[in-house]
Write a protein that binds this DNA or RNA. Structure first.
Length: 207
DNA sequence: CATATGATTCCA
DNA sequence: GGAATCATATGA
């Protein structure tokens, strides 16, 4: 159904290492509107590339950020999180959902940006839902098998945004345990997109 | 080895 | 509102 994409053109617009070598707050904002390209499916190579446009992100800023997994130091799980910028950090949450993150800042910094939602562009069911970290990772097949993958190389990489989107900010979702850090406005999203995930409602009457 | 707890989603 | 479901971190 969706139009064929020119893989060579996509590859040519890949984001380079230096793009990721910035604070997670900067990368999280810049990532909204960018494309995620996965040239291989779960089968390991069948089908067209899966392409989606990011509409929602969250910044996680290293050991001092109590909502960031880097607070646990270097473990088998946080190995890629604490590695070089521009790599995938994928982990399982709640025993069933995988979360896809992009490492940034620099080696050992523990900065990462969580991709929380995107809209389908190509190679996906036009009606596919990619709102919510679990749905995004499942639809794009960005599983833990890709943890530690270098995002400047195929089969999984990011491309610069075709157009500059509007950006809205809010507190991060699901990190109430992190005390003062939970209140920081480190979630970035395109308010004009219907694909943005909705935070759990803790109160009613918000319209 | 045992156990508490999530960077969530789906159903009632 | 509450269950599903398990890797991870932590402590014994």
């Amino acid at each position: 159904m969706s139009f064929d994409v020119d893989v060579e053109s996509l590859r040519a617009t890949r984001l380079v290492r230096g793009w990721y070598a910035r604070d997670a707050l900067v990368v999280a904002r810049a990532l909204v509107g960018c494309l995620v390209v996965h040239e291989r499916g779960e089968g390991g190579g069948e089908g067209r590339p899966r392409v989606s446009r990011v509409v929602e992100t969250e910044a996680y800023r290293g050991p001092k950020d109590l909502a960031c997994h880097a607070r646990a130091g270097l473990t088998r799980r946080t190995r890629s999180l604490l590695g070089t910028e521009g790599h995938a950090y994928v982990f399982l949450v709640y025993g069933m959902h995988e979360c896809f993150n992009v490492t940034c800042a620099g080696e050992g910094m523990g900065h990462a940006v969580l991709v929380r939602a995107a809209e389908p562009v190509s190679g996906l069911d036009p009606g596919a839902r990619l709102d919510g970290p679990g749905r995004f990772a499942r639809a794009m097949a960005t599983s833990r098998a890709l943890d530690g993958h270098d995002l400047t190389r195929p089969p999984l990489y990011l491309c610069g945004r075709p157009r500059r989107p509007r950006i809205a900010v809010s507190a991060r979702v699901g990190v109430a345990y992190a005390g003062d850090w939970a209140a920081r406005l480190w979630r970035f999203y395109d308010p004009s997109s219907v694909h943005v995930s909705r935070p759990p409602k803790k109160s009613i009457g918000l319209g």
